[in-house]
Design a protein around this nucleic acid. Structure first.
Length: 428
RNA sequence: GGUGAGGUGGAUGAGUGGCUGAAAUCAACAGUUUGCUAAACUGUCGUACGGGUUAAACUGUACCGCGGGUUCGAAUCCCGCCCUCACCGCCA
């Protein structure tokens, strides 16, 4: 971690003004951090230079002490020891200040979010997102159509009340056909990703602090993750965290790129402070199932990979026959770590609103810098690669839409691709 | 949870206080040889942060799991922690 942040400061120093400009596009509120970070880095360099120069002379002296002793020149040895002792106390002070400065620099640096790509539109709220395209057909629901929170009761497939009894609100208890539908969707999504060349992983569902820093959840999302103090572990908010960290501190052969990985995991999110119909039913829960795709790519190929991933998710949504739209997020709505993000939303016909079901992002070198994920280039130099990820897909809102959009008077029809996995063409 | 062994460069693996940023072997890369492949031979071959340079060259410091300590000097000695492996206990 100590080494990695050094790389980022050099990128900032190359063009301080443009860094500030791009942070403004991201609606970042503390632009002054950039200047602070640069001046801390100046201080660091000065201290380091002075301390290392002194250390070099100490090292030379120490060698000569060894030689004096070997030749039996006691007087000279004692003399040299005195000089060394004087220098060492000075080095001690410098080192002290240096490590304080480094700690401050690191502390400030990790507060800086990723820079948005030049393709990102300015904006501060979801209204400023740009609709790239829409697909699928919105259904005309019959009179008396029910929202999913009523449908799940009607068919007895998800029990929020008992989930709340067992754990708390936002922890759904899936039952019978509801549980089976979860399993069917996970299976289908994984197989779909594997067919596109992704390697399947089943990762740990808790991560340590280094992993959480590596992908940028810390320090930004501290408090949004469930934390286990006894072991200093975090429950994962997405399998992006463990999966990307598979390659933390690794150097990958260039010819092995891109690395394509997929994983199912439950996701745990505290999501404090929301209420009302935004969080009703499956719209927002503390634990949910998700299948994720992650790519590690050559820096020059990452935007091609992003497009490929967007198309991949779009086709997947198409097979579910749900009406969807793709948004390019504006600077202010993007995550801390992202350089460019496309959100996928499906249309929830009974609620008559769009629900986010996937978010596909290019992090460029931001995560790679933190997690020290590199490849060796043609000149034998280690270079940061680019990381990307996306949901394919998050289950709850998909389920909400499947239920609402396909409801009939006494059953719910499922799309054809799920029949085999679910073992039936309908929920009854 | 208990006991024991161990963590050294891409890999294997030497190294118990200065001549060790680290032997040797393998892998990798470059070259020579070779009809091709193979083999043989020669050379290169860790990382990070500084100084220096148009860029190099060159040069300083640190790093042998992590963090402290002893010493003029630590991979090597001491303390704490983490991890891995083995066996035992418990257990899905």
């Amino acid at each position: 971690m100590k080494l990695a942040f050094m790389l980022q400061i050099n990128i900032i120093r190359q063009d301080i003004d443009s860094v500030k400009e791009r942070l403004k596009i991201k609606n970042f509120q503390h632009i002054e951090l950039v200047d602070r970070v640069v001046s801390l880095d100046d201080e660091r360099k000065t201290l380091q230079f002075e301390s290392e120069t002194l250390q070099a002379s100490v090292n030379t002296q120490s060698k000569s002490i060894g030689q004096f002793i070997a030749k039996g020149l006691k007087e000279e040895a004692e003399q040299a020891k005195k000089i060394v002792a004087a220098n060492k106390s000075r080095i001690g002070e410098l080192q002290q200040r240096l490590s304080e400065t480094e700690a401050q620099l690191h502390q400030e640096l990790v507060k800086l979010p990723n820079l948005p790509s030049t393709k990102v539109p300015a904006g501060t709220s979801p209204e400023d997102n740009i609709v790239e395209r829409e697909g699928g057909i919105k259904p005309n629901l019959p009179q008396g159509a029910l929202p999913h929170w009523d449908l799940i009761k009607k068919y007895d497939i998800i029990d929020f009340e008992t989930g709340a009894k067992i754990t708390g609100s936002g922890f759904p208890l899936y039952k019978g056909q509801g549980a089976r539908l979860q399993r069917a969707l996970v299976q289908y999504f994984l197989n779909y990703n594997i067919a596109a060349g992704y390697t399947e992983y089943l990762p740990p569902f808790m991560v340590n602090e280094s992993s959480a820093y590596g992908t940028g959840q810390l320090p930004d999302k501290e408090g949004q993750m469930y934390y286990m103090p006894a072991d200093n572990f975090y429950l994962i908010p997405t399998s992006e965290v463990p999966v990307t960290n598979i390659y933390r501190d690794e150097i990958i052969k260039e010819e092995s790129l891109p690395v394509k990985m997929t994983a199912y995991s439950p996701c745990f999110r505290r999501e404090a402070g929301s209420f009302g119909k935004d969080v009703r039913g499956l719209n927002r829960v503390h634990q949910f199932e998700k299948v994720e795709i992650v790519q590690l790519t050559h820096p020059e190929k990452s935007y091609d990979a992003l497009e490929e991933m967007v198309n991949h998710v779009e086709r997947l949504l198409g097979t579910l026959q749900l009406p969807y739209r793709i948004l390019k997020l504006c600077g202010g709505d993007m995550s801390f770590t992202s350089a460019l993000t496309y959100d996928f939303e499906v249309y929830s016909a009974a609620q008559q609103r769009w629900l986010e079901v996937s978010s596909v992002s290019n992090f460029e070198a931001y995560q790679a810098n933190r997690a020290k994920i590199r490849y060796k280039d043609g000149n034998g130099k280690n270079q940061l690669l680019h990381t990307l990820n996306g949901s394919s897909l998050a289950l709850p809102r998909i389920v909400a839409c499947l239920l609402e959009n396909n409801q009939q008077t006494d059953h719910i029809l499922l799309p054809g691709v799920l029949h085999g996995y679910f073992g039936s063409d309908r929920i009854v």
